[in-house]
Amino acid sequence: MVEAKIKINSQTGLHARPASLLVKEANKFKSNICLVKHDKEYNAKSIMSVMSMGATFGDEIIIRASGEDENEALNSLKSIIEALKD
């Protein structure tokens, strides 16, 4: 299992459009991937789950991946969240 901490830098947070980008990307990997906010896990492959996290500007979240392609998954999701800007 690998994980990384990351801060949401988008003013609008993870709402529909960024969330759907993220979910589409997550679904490309075989690993189990989740996002963690306030110790609660959210399924990164589910738009409902990612949106129900309600991540807004400045929130710190953890990306956690486990599986055969966990490293690639982690890196790719990390770069998507980092690139989020309004």
Binding site: A16, S20, V23, N43, K45, S46, I47, M48, S49
Partner: peptide, 13 residues
Amino acid sequence: FEAHLMILEDVEF
């Protein structure tokens, strides 16, 4: 409707 489609494909839901 784009969002509606994604909900219909959502693993959690």
